[in-house]
Amino acid sequence: MKKTPVAAIVAVAALALLPLVLADNYFLHLLILFLIWVIIGSSWNIMAGYTGQVSFGHAAFFGTGAYTAGLFVMHGGFSAWWGMAFGGVAAMLLGLPFGAICFPLRGAYFALASLALNLILMHLATIAERFTGGMQGIMIMPTFVSKVPYYYITLGMAVATLVVVQSIIRSKWGYYFVSIREDQDAAESLGIDTNRYKNVSLAVSAFFTGTAGALYMNYMGFIDPHVVFSLHDYSVMAILVAIVGGVGTIYGPAVGAFIMVGLQELFRSGFFGLFKYLGDRTGSETFTQAMEVVQHAHVLVFGILVVVVILFLPNGIVGDWGKIRKSVFRSKPAA
């Protein structure tokens, strides 16, 4: 795994060529969501998976990035694309003092502090109506009608994130990060400035998450505090993406993002309309009811997936790939 796997290069090439073949907006939208989650999941992963500083409040950075972009429009009349340049920086500026204050806290305390940061920002953005528009949110008209430009921008960012994460992890910093995760005291005794490197990993993580937030604002055209600072939809989802794919692996979050976005859409749309189609064809009520059950189950499936993954694949799909392959392979001759 020292070099970039061929599979990754092929995947990126395939993704880059995809819009030429498949210009369907709906699939492009799903792919954009998937790529945004690759960015967020990888960002969370560099801080939590590699450095061991588990954050329960990554929505704080995401929302800060999104609001940076939104506030450019609301107050300056500038284009929200400026947010792409400054959203990440703003998230970093939020993260650094937070890290400086909270990194001395260890383990669960740090996780809780990040959760509190997330909630505080959500409430503040709600209350500061004059500054943020409160719950009325910020709305812009997206620049492009076509999805294709967004798709390439997001793809570019996702690839950039993965490349940066990978090169950091393989650099000296990466070893410092992992040593902090494995044994902070030992790392310190080796002369590693643990607080400094925790902050480095936080800064990288916040930067990419914030940029993803700014991208979200540009792409979606609408944000409000409960959307972009959502504990459930971003902070927890970031964790799920990473643990399902594989914490502390470079491609884990990408795999996790694919699975989570795919599952959500699969269930929300009732298996892409399978049940409705069968129901219409057969005229049977059972399928319509089955569709409702499936649709209502979409978050439940997430929950069960988390429980199952942690229980049986604690290192995620990528991290435990050997285990999966072995068990699938073993069953192959019989099947």
């Binding site: 907006n25 709906y26 969501l33 979606m220 409000d224 929300r268 749309s269």
Partner: peptide, 10 residues
Amino acid sequence: PDVGRAATEK
């Protein structure tokens, strides 16, 4: 909103 947007697009 993001899901609503996707749904509309679909």
